[in-house]
Amino acid sequence: SPEVQIAILTEQINNLNEHLRVHKKDHHSRRGLLKMVGKRRRLLAYLRNKDVARYREIVEKLG
């Protein structure tokens, strides 16, 4: 489901952010981070168009 995919991506994004705080010059990982953020944004847009209630619920849960 989109909610699960968004939750997994959010966790991976948070982990990668911590990694990049330590390894500032790791541009390869930064590119992966940007791809993940874009994918999460697309999934959220899809969910917002399909079911606003589910969209609001996941945004509330994940912050």
Rank of each mutant, 00 (worst) to 15 (best):
P2Y: 14
P2F: 14
P2L: 15
P2G: 03
E3I: 06
V4M: 12
V4K: 11
V4L: 11
Q5R: 05
Q5E: 09
Q5D: 07
Q5H: 05
I6M: 02
I6G: 00
I8Q: 10
I8E: 09
L9A: 00
L9K: 00
L9N: 01
T10V: 07
T10D: 02
T10R: 01
E11M: 10
E11K: 07
E11A: 09
Q12G: 05
Q12W: 12
I13T: 00
I13K: 02
I13P: 00
I13E: 00
I13Y: 00
I13D: 00
I13C: 04
N14F: 07
N14T: 06
N14G: 05
N15I: 14
N15W: 13
N15H: 13
L16C: 07
L16T: 03
L16H: 02
L16F: 05
L16W: 04
N17C: 15
N17S: 14
N17V: 15
N17W: 14
N17P: 01
H19D: 04
H19P: 01
L20D: 01
L20E: 01
L20H: 03
L20A: 02
R21P: 01
R21M: 07
R21G: 03
R21W: 04
V22R: 09
H23I: 03
H23E: 04
H23N: 11
K24G: 11
K25Y: 13
K25L: 12
D26S: 04
D26L: 03
H27T: 10
H27A: 11
H28E: 13
H28I: 12
S29D: 04
R31F: 09
R31G: 07
R31C: 11
G32V: 15
L33A: 01
L33S: 01
L33R: 03
L34P: 01
L34S: 07
L34G: 04
K35G: 05
M36F: 04
M36G: 02
V37K: 08
V37H: 07
G38K: 14
R40M: 09
R40E: 01
R40W: 05
R40V: 14
R40A: 04
R41P: 00
R42T: 07
R42P: 00
L43I: 06
L43D: 00
L43V: 02
L43G: 01
L43M: 05
L44G: 00
A45S: 07
A45G: 06
Y46T: 10
L47C: 02
L47D: 00
R48G: 02
R48E: 05
R48I: 05
R48Q: 06
N49V: 13
N49Q: 12
K50V: 15
K50G: 03
D51K: 02
V52C: 12
A53C: 10
A53I: 11
A53Y: 08
A53R: 10
Y55C: 03
Y55G: 01
Y55D: 01
Y55H: 03
Y55T: 01
R56W: 14
R56N: 13
R56S: 06
R56A: 07
E57S: 06
E57F: 04
E57W: 05
E57Q: 08
E57T: 04
I58E: 03
I58R: 00
V59S: 03
V59A: 04
E60I: 11
E60L: 10
E60V: 09
L62W: 05
L62S: 02
G63P: 06
G63Q: 12
G63W: 15
